[in-house]
Amino acid sequence: MNIIVSILSLTFFAQVLRLFTPYFLGANAANFSERAGVINIAIEGFMITSALGYALFTYLTNNIFLGFVCAILVNLLFSLLYALFVIKLKINQIVAGVGFNLLMAGLAKFLIVFIFQSSSNTPRIPDLPNIPYIQDIPYVGEVLSDYIILFSFALIFISNFVLFKTKFGLRLRSAGENPEAGESLGIKIRLYKLYGVLICGFLSALGGIWLASNQNSFSDGMVAGRGYIALAAMIIGKWKPVNILFACIMFAFFEALEITFQISGTFIPSQIIQMLPYLITILVLIGFIGKTKPPASDGIPY
């Protein structure tokens, strides 16, 4: 009974929204890249570097805004490097992704020890500011007044609009579907692939920043596979922003449930709930829950 009550509470709802945010940002990041035909399994690493970047630069400059901007710049630089590897040098995207993940996670591990002499986390940093007045609403105020959470709501519409209603989106998608066809019509395919990778870096940076801000620090392992869940959400969402939204809500719901169960104790082992997102993803891929089809030239160097 207690569990049902706590699930139906507004606190639980706010929790789901919080957990939803990094997933949705990561999934949209991955989606922009894959819509341009570039697989990026290093989303996890991108979220790590931006989370650290935000905490680090906020701490160093004592200025939240500068921390925010620097974190995004860090990710854009890594995105450029990634683009150099997979677009310019045409290195296998999976292998490059594994390499970037190793490098980025390693870099974060190293920097927190090197700069803060702590093997686990950075010192406390302040939150990003909230929108005044809204934050005073009980239960959900804190969530609804968070700029990044609000942006991720807006992202539902922005993603849809950019991908499906604009010239830019149409050309970006042609790069992921059939680059030869796009090229035959005079489109600079590789440039659009670069745009996709950069947008991916930007959105995943927002995800990382939000995580660090929400936790008031960066700690080793804090991204905890969220980058991979974001990829899973994108796949289950069939590369469509609206479906991705539902996939992310589902994953956030499971995670909130797991936390609730852990606190209140229940007969369902938390590990089983933990593995659900991944299990569902595999079942979706096998085709138990509808067919999924990635962009036709996804992952193929051009």
């Binding site: 149409l170 042609s174 066809a181 035959s184 089809k293």
Partner: peptide, 17 residues
């Protein structure tokens, strides 16, 4: 040189939108 997942309209205007 067509994109399977695009509509006819999208295929035609692509590059000259």
């Amino acid at each position: 040189m067509l994109i399977e997942d695009f509509t006819i309209l999208e295929n035609v205007i692509l590059g000259s939108e």
